[in-house]
Design a protein around this nucleic acid. Structure first.
Lengths: 227, 227
DNA sequence: GTCTATAGGAAGATAGAC
DNA sequence: GTCTATCTTCCTATAGAC
């Protein structure tokens, strides 16, 4: 076992506690919003008293900012990873659909952190919001370029405003936490619907051939978590 | 001037103050969320002291519930009104697009109340949320029937799950307050993009003829407020 | 109808024992 | 590392004068 392995695999008890606090905060951010998330509730959920929380974090805002930060990064990294998994001959539209599906998946099941980051965006205090926008620069560029590639390839309806279309579709997936219920349909189903909807929305009347609207098997929406 | 006119036109001073309080609360709900909206801030925005607010409302929650209630009703009524304005030969897809555009318009400009109602949905306390769901029943049915009519008319991609598609698209328009900036594009532009996107998304590969994806002039996205 | 003053409680944060 | 006890601030809501 390498030293790096030891440091990463076996989380110290201290790291575990810290993580429980962040998990609790992410959960509460989703249910109560930014201002509704209380340190006392975080402590209760993490099975601690309030002062123990302040041993790990300087302030309430520091906890919440770290949650948002992690959530944004998880979403970005997952989208990048899924894009890299695509076969080299994937079309521009294939890449766009895979990106939205990867983002949606993170929001819905893999990460309460990502859902929290998306849902509290508009509620952050000014300074936190500014830092978040700064961090999100790379993601913003990535999404812009994905859509732009589709336009240049002639696969995206040229009558659509690219920015508005991108934001509408991101909104559609970010909002999904409000209504998605795993009991009413599997993750695979919802991801398939999302991909179909995104493909239709962006291709528009260009999607004349039957194959253009049907993703290939290689673009499976199923998420395979890393070991 | 009819007596009804007199009652509606000339709002009593008392009604005006009450309205200022609700306006302030709607604005704050959008910016701060449910838990972040303070009575003291409502009072300041309404140019009052806190006790004056409690002269008009029994509690903080009573103010916020009325805002949400009004917001939901405004959205519903506006969608119904716009549907009634459509020419009788409008297609099922025309009706769906007009409905989403009417909802988006309310969310973006005509009503801070509607935006507040949509954005705070997930943050309401259990009892308020239950009452809101009860009130939203009629709206839910209306949206379901709109999409269903499209499916039955063969104008909606049959491979889409109707419920998921409806919720994704409502999410897309509800989320628009997070990013839409009037300085970057007019209301007419954003409504046109939304209609195009909704039409594409739902029609999918069925939208093979050029006309199918181009709304007619009769379906102007411009909102004309009542006198 | 609107105000000043204030009760009563809950929240964020810290001191200091263990 | 985690706790009990406590400080300070801010919030909702009310009492009562004008």
């Amino acid at each position: 076992m390498t030293k790096a392995d030891g440091a990463q695999r076996r989380e110290r008890k201290s790291d575990k506690t810290r993580r429980r606090i962040l998990d609790a905060a992410a959960d509460l951010l989703n249910r109560k919003g930014f201002d509704g998330t209380r340190v006392s509730e975080i402590a209760t959920l993490a099975e601690l008293r309030v002062p123990a929380v302040y041993y790990y974090f300087d302030s309430r805002e520091a906890i919440l900012e770290e949650v948002v930060n992690i959530g944004d990064r998880l979403a970005h990294d997952n989208v990048v990873r899924r894009l890299n998994e695509l076969p080299p001959d994937a079309s521009a539209l294939d890449r766009i659909c895979a990106a939205f599906a990867a983002h949606l998946e993170m929001v819905l099941t893999e990460s309460a952190y990502t859902a929290a980051a998306m849902r509290t965006m508009g509620q952050l205090p000014a300074d936190m919001r500014a830092r978040q926008l700064e961090r999100q620069r790379a993601s913003g560029r990535m999404w812009r370029e994905l859509i732009q590639a589709g336009v240049e390839a002639g696969e995206v309806d040229p009558e659509l405003d690219p920015r508005a279309a991108r934001m509408f579709l991101l909104g559609a997936v970010n909002w999904a936490t409000e209504w998605w219920n795993p009991a009413r349909g599997s993750l695979e189903e919802i991801l398939a619907t999302a991909q179909r909807l995104v493909r239709n929305a962006l291709a528009g009347p260009l999607a004349r051939s039957a194959t253009a609207a049907t993703p290939r098997a290689a673009l499976s929406p199923v998420f395979i978590p890393p070991p």
